[in-house]
């Protein structure tokens, strides 16, 4: 469903990850781990097609991936139903009922998103994922500002998605209570160019560096 081959990606022009490889089969979830700054967000953005990989390939049809990051694209002046209805229309879907039910938003559908609590907003953002109808979820820290009950609710939503033949690639530090493989990104940290890592255009010296040419 999603296959990543020998992927290298950069943040701000500097390589951060290299030789990343994994596959994601239908019904499978993969959790990314690693210290802050290792490049989890960069990797997810690259897989979602927001960034160009430095090297390597991502094998997936671009119309199968649904991406969700820290910001949910929710408009405060629109109601819950209007927010969801818009994203459903963009993705050619019409029915927002199942997503509303799964994220326990039924009582809130006509409430403007401005009046939602942080956790309710997050649930709306996740319901947005469901209405895309896309099988591969790429989620960046999806449980930020969720309480324990909402985390469990979210875990069940992901489990239901997996059971329905979908798959998920998640960067998170907490246990979602789902069956998932874990990929630690620490071994994939990009090496400096001197040790076999990828060199950018400005990594090579000009031959006169040592002679104090900067001065």
């Amino acid at each position: 469903m999603l296959r990543v081959i020998d992927l290298a990606c950069a943040r701000g022009g500097v390589p951060v990850l290299e030789s990343v490889a994994f596959t994601l089969a239908p019904g499978e979830a993969l959790v990314l781990r690693g210290p802050n700054g290792i490049g989890k967000t960069t990797l997810l953005r690259t897989v979602a097609g927001l960034q160009v990989p430095l090297a390597g390939r991502i094998e997936a049809k671009p119309d199968r991936i649904a991406y969700a990051a820290h910001a949910d694209g929710i408009k405060a002046t629109l109601s819950v139903a209007e927010n969801l209805g818009f994203w459903a229309a963009v993705h050619g879907q019409s029915d927002i009922g199942p997503a509303v039910a799964a994220m326990n938003l039924s009582a809130l559908v006509n409430r403007p998103a401005a009046n939602l609590s942080a956790g309710q907003k997050r649930r709306l953002g996740l319901a947005r994922l469901m209405v895309t109808g896309r099988p591969v979820w790429v989620l960046d820290e999806p449980t930020v500002s969720l309480d324990l009950a909402s985390v469990a609710l979210f875990g069940r939503a992901v489990a239901a998605h997996l059971a329905g033949g979908g798959s998920a690639l998640i960067a998170t530090h907490i246990d979602l209570g789902i069956e998932a493989r874990v990929l630690d990104l620490t071994p994939f940290r990009a090496r400096p160019p001197g040790q076999g890592g990828i060199a950018t255009a400005f990594d090579g010296g000009f031959g006169d560096d040592a002679a104090g040419a900067f001065l």
Binding site: L50, Y67, A71, G73, K75, V90
Partner: peptide
């Protein structure tokens, strides 16, 4: 506004 609330990031990979 669409940039700040993340709408653009979601719009780019969308079918639109």
């Amino acid at each position: 506004l669409d940039f700040e609330d993340g709408t653009l990031e979601i719009l780019i990979p969308s079918p639109l």
